[in-house]
Design a protein around this nucleic acid. Sequence first.
DNA 1: TTGAAAGCGCTACCAG
DNA 2: CTGGTAGCGCTTTCAA
Lengths: 340, 340
Amino acid sequence: MNKNHAVTAQDVATKAGVSRAAVSRTFTNNGSVAKETREKILKAAQELGYQVNFLAQGLNRKRSQLIGVVVARLSDPFRSRLLEGLLSEIQNKGYQALVTEIGNPKDLEETIRRFTQFRVSGVVVTSGQPPTGLVKECVQHNIPVVGINRHMDIKDVDFICSDNQMGATLAAQQLIDSGCHKLAWLNYKESTWSGVSRGEAFRNAIEQKQAEQVLNLIQITALQDGYEGGRSAAKLFCRSDERVEGVFCANAQLACGFLDGMREEGFDAPRDFHLIGFDDTELTAQYSYRLTTIGQDIEETAARALSCLEARGRDATTEPRFEVVPVKLVLRNTSPALFC
Amino acid sequence: MNKNHAVTAQDVATKAGVSRAAVSRTFTNNGSVAKETREKILKAAQELGYQVNFLAQGLNRKRSQLIGVVVARLSDPFRSRLLEGLLSEIQNKGYQALVTEIGNPKDLEETIRRFTQFRVSGVVVTSGQPPTGLVKECVQHNIPVVGINRHMDIKDVDFICSDNQMGATLAAQQLIDSGCHKLAWLNYKESTWSGVSRGEAFRNAIEQKQAEQVLNLIQITALQDGYEGGRSAAKLFCRSDERVEGVFCANAQLACGFLDGMREEGFDAPRDFHLIGFDDTELTAQYSYRLTTIGQDIEETAARALSCLEARGRDATTEPRFEVVPVKLVLRNTSPALFC
DNA sequence: TTGAAAGCGCTACCAG
DNA sequence: CTGGTAGCGCTTTCAA
């Protein structure tokens, strides 16, 4: 077999009877190598089982083919779907994902620091509010940063975001067309930027429609996030005297919880009210929920994120982008299609 | 501010008036450094914002503080929970996770190769059957490998596995104690080792009980995996003449799907039959399912996986471990607690 | 097109 | 305890 020691470019060079510079060139498609030489090298490498040492390569280039990904609460199906999409895109582009989960936003600092220590080629933030200072550090280190479904006022950071405006408008349209007049917006008390932004867009959409007919919009606030938050919100809501005909939720987990909470209280959709959630996940499609949702285009989002990273990697002074990815209305049982 | 160039150990050394060897020592807690010197260095480092370059460090040590994690189908809540647990453990122990998702088992080869190129400190395989040859390659490179919820006959690889035997026995016990005589085992046609193993254990448990009373066990085979697999299996099953009182499923997704499929056909648990699934996830706890499940101890599993990696990292010739993690029965609505 | 050589930033050994 | 030094394996000018 092979010697116990890992096989290096020098080994290949020796075996092929060339310099190790030539080996490097063939493997990085960088300099020019005579076709014949190249083949000799490839053959030798093959036989020896040579593989580039990424650590050494990165050290030299001052840049690894690693991409840092910041995630949180993977138990939320949407978040894990997003991670899945990112992983797939990252791998397709020939990078490797360095994934860090942050429990509380404070961890983000240490995380990003770690990323820089690995000289990552880019950082994707899908959770937490990147502390401005830290991101600046990345920018200083010349590491591109892209945020997904969030926004901050930081120079030189790109953002990819689902079209909350469009989503809210589609939802409002659907609810109103279904004949709902008493509408509600359900969101978590300490919602992220995404949630807030969806709420504002929904309110705006409703206000526009108010020119044509009388509409009523209330706000339901969940004290927790996720499924349980939605569920308790529903129970609390039922105990109030308010009634509502159409509900739009900041995310799918909240929506599923709300639906279940209402069911526990004896109400159901679409019989007693209509319900639309943001984030189309496997869960929302399941028979017991069949939630009408706003579907985000995860593949597109991931693709654009990577493309931002690469663009800014090439030229750090690119004009910061804020890209909006179209969403679509996925009609299911909780607010069914209209047959007019 | 700082010079544009990243600050190196040499910069710190110069500023502190020591050699860069001393800097290295303080930051790796390796050699011995006078307390005073150490403080000088730390201070200088602080002021300069020095951070170890992990690429250089890894290159030297021939080992990075990276741990490779192989995952698949993160859309399955159990899998994403497991990843979450692993990430948390990996980070707590001071490593960073290099996560790769593999679509089909063929990708595993390239993946593991990439891992070795980064000189990872270990590899956790949560999906796919690691091709023996590849794992051997890791072992040759002296990279510890641990598999979770799977098993192969490879020398020098450790395995951590939920106690399928115990889970199946608990499930059998519960169903029988609830008065079920006609039992069924539901699994995906091309199930992984875990599923198969759970099925065998269930069969055994039933057979043991048969000494005491007349029991009947049939097998329901899902043609797809996951929720949809369970759902179609239920529909198919209902169309047959078979009837069943207690069903045990290889995993939670299958179980949820089966339940929904049965509901679509007008049956429900626990009214018409009892149902127990493997994998306790957030989904199974939700009101619309409230599935009785066998709960795996993910934190414990992750902790043991890491501990195996570290043990084998220290001494590659450790006796291969096959560790079994206890599970527990989580009683919910689909097979409620007995009050005897 | 090719090879020699100068590092990338850090660790670890060895002598002092 | 400390500093000098020899690499780790690769990339990338620079001449030839």
